[in-house]
Every structure is written in structure tokens, then in C-alpha cells.
Amino acid sequence: MTPLLIHKYHGLGNDYLVCHRSVAEQLSNEQIRILCHRHYGVGSDGLLIDSGDLNNPTLRIINPDGSEAEKSGNGLRIYARYLFDIGRVGHQPFLVRTAGGEVHCTVHNDFHQISVEMGRANFNPTALPALVNLPEALNYPLALADETLSVALVSMGNPHCVVLVDKLDLAQVHRLGPQIENHPWFPRRTNVQFVEVVDRHTLKIGIWERGAGFTMASGSSSCAAASAMRRLGRVDDRIDVNMPGGQLQITIRDDFHVCMRGPVHKIASLTVDKDCFVATVKVSI
């Protein structure tokens, strides 16, 4: 039996556990939920599974609630740093496969800094998917229980609903994020970003992540928010996205191909004791 060796990293406070597929194959969804729990497990915003072979890095992303995500910007940066740390890659760009598409990653000479070519932002609601019968949904009304918001829908290989606000209020993110995540428009749920435009090169965002809840930072959310504001003409092609956990740099080409750059830090490598999974209470995230 393979020891349950895992590694913990964070990107701007958005923390993930990383393990090889030989470890993940020993874990049930319920055990992953316990492992990600802040009190009963190691604690994280999800589990990254190294699923490829030596020559074909492939990433699976499991949310803390046991569901699977197509793509994660912070997850990809962390996975790239993990591959660098174990000697699988160097400083040259390399390809990573995800359920949300292929991306190119680069570990810079300062190995804390990772760039990811995230692919093209797609503004067609069917790409999320979202049940909106339009070629694009920008400044589109989304009715909630007690109010209606103006939103923009965008896919970065995973779904995003971007809400433009005059002033970012994290209490509003906590209050409305769950309603938007589970709105009937989104049959597979959605990630949510509340966005304040500071100037043409700066955004402030608050994030409610599908399957994880409020998060300190998110790479794909930063890319989605910046792309939506670029599409609406509110920002230029180089944007600093500020979150509670810190800042990412986003560059958007004319064809809406998006590149993200930001930091990753390693926290620990450890072996999980199986006593962790002898839970006496039902774990909820």
C-alpha cells in the first residue's frame, strides 16, 4: 500500500493539497472531504491530483465538497511548482492537461513566481454552461431572491459569473455568493466574482468559489473578472487583480487569450495517518 504522502502549498492564501494518483486512488470522496476539512483533516481549498506520467503532466482538481473542477488558476500554479520541486520540470515552459483544456506553465528563475497561459476567455453562455439563450451575456440581469444584479458570464475552461459593483463588500460576497453559485441558470453551478474597478489597470475582487465557498484568492476568477471588465471596456490589457490574499498580474491579448502570473509557496510535506478518516461526525464543508 502506498503511504498517504501529500504536499501542501498556497497561492495568495488559496491553499491546496497535492498528491500522486497512487495516493488519491486510496481515498474515497468522503475521505477527501475529511482531508480538506479545517478541523478534522489537514485543511485546504481542494486536492490536486498528479494524474499523468513523467512526460505528460495531467492535473485533476477535487473541491473540498468532493466535486471535481475543470480548471483552477491557483491550482495550476501550485501544480507547476510541485512538478518543479520534485524535478519533473525546469524553467522552460511546459504543457499541463486539465479537464478544462491544455495550458502552458512557466516556473520563473525566482521559483516562487509562476506564469500560466490560461487559454481564451469564452463569453458564450453555453460554454459555462448557463441557461441563457444569447451569444454573450454582458450587463445581463440576474434575479435573486431579493434583488437583481447585473452580471457578465465567462468561461475560462470553468464557469464564472462576474458581478460589477461600485464598492467591494466582502459581506455581500458571503451573502449572495451561495445564491449565485446554485442559481438555476447554472446546471453545474458556477464560480462567482464581485468586482470593483479601481482604475484601468487595477481591480479589487471578492470570490465565492464553486464547491469551496469564500476563498482568499483564485487564479481563474482573476482571469475571468479581468476578461469581463476588458470586454466591457472598463480596463486595459494589463491588469493587477487584488484579492484578500494578495495580487495577481493578468495580461489579455486582443483575441482574449489570458496569461496569469503570481506567487506560490510551499507549506509542508507530510504523511496522513489513516486515523484521520475514523470520523465520529458527518463532515460538511
Rank of each mutant, 00 (worst) to 15 (best):
A225V: 03
N124D: 09
L153K: 14
G75D: 01
M243V: 06
V132P: 00
A217Q: 14
A171L: 10
G157Y: 07
L170Y: 14
L168N: 06
G75W: 03
F277E: 08
L164F: 12
D254L: 13
D255T: 12
L27Y: 06
S221G: 11
I32Q: 04
N139G: 09
R261M: 00
H112S: 14
F256H: 05
R81Y: 08
S115T: 07
I239G: 00
K71V: 15
L95Q: 15
R189N: 03
G246L: 04
R261I: 06
L12E: 00
M156L: 11
A80Q: 09
L12C: 05
V198D: 09
R175Q: 15
V96F: 11
Y9L: 07
Y9P: 08
F256D: 04
W185E: 10
N139M: 13
F277Q: 05
A24M: 07
I205C: 15
C161V: 05
Y140H: 01
A80L: 07
T2V: 13
D237Y: 13
K71C: 12
S155G: 15
K204R: 15
H104Y: 13
L95W: 14
S227Q: 03
C19E: 00
N63G: 08
V23G: 09
S155W: 07
E117P: 08
R261V: 02
Y79M: 05
K8D: 02
L131I: 14
G66M: 02
N63F: 01
H160V: 05
V151M: 11
V154I: 12
P129R: 04
H265S: 05
T126A: 15
I207W: 12
D236R: 08
T98M: 03
R253M: 02
Q92D: 15
S269K: 10
A143L: 10
C36K: 00
G206H: 01
I205W: 14
R38L: 01
I34Q: 10
R253E: 14
V96Q: 00
G52A: 10
M216R: 13
P159Y: 05
N242R: 13
A224K: 14
E196R: 11
N55W: 09
I252W: 00
V23E: 04
D275N: 11
N158C: 03
M216D: 04
N14V: 01
R238Y: 15
N122A: 05
S44L: 00
Q193S: 12
A171D: 11
V235D: 05
F214T: 12
R38N: 07
Q113C: 08
A143R: 13
V258K: 14
F186L: 06
G211T: 09
D237M: 13
G100Y: 03
N14Y: 02
K71T: 15
G13C: 01
T2D: 10
F277V: 06
A69L: 15
I250T: 04
R231H: 10
V96P: 04
A145E: 15
L4M: 05
R189L: 05
Y9T: 02
A224L: 10
I239H: 09
G87C: 01
P3Q: 02
P129F: 10
H112W: 09
A99Q: 09
I267H: 06
L128P: 14
P263Q: 07
L176Y: 01
A80S: 04
R120T: 13
N158D: 03
D146A: 08
G246D: 03
V132C: 11
V89S: 08
S67Y: 01
N109K: 12
M260K: 07
G119T: 08
P129L: 03
H10L: 08
V163N: 14
T126H: 11
P3L: 12
G219R: 06
R60D: 05
Q26M: 04
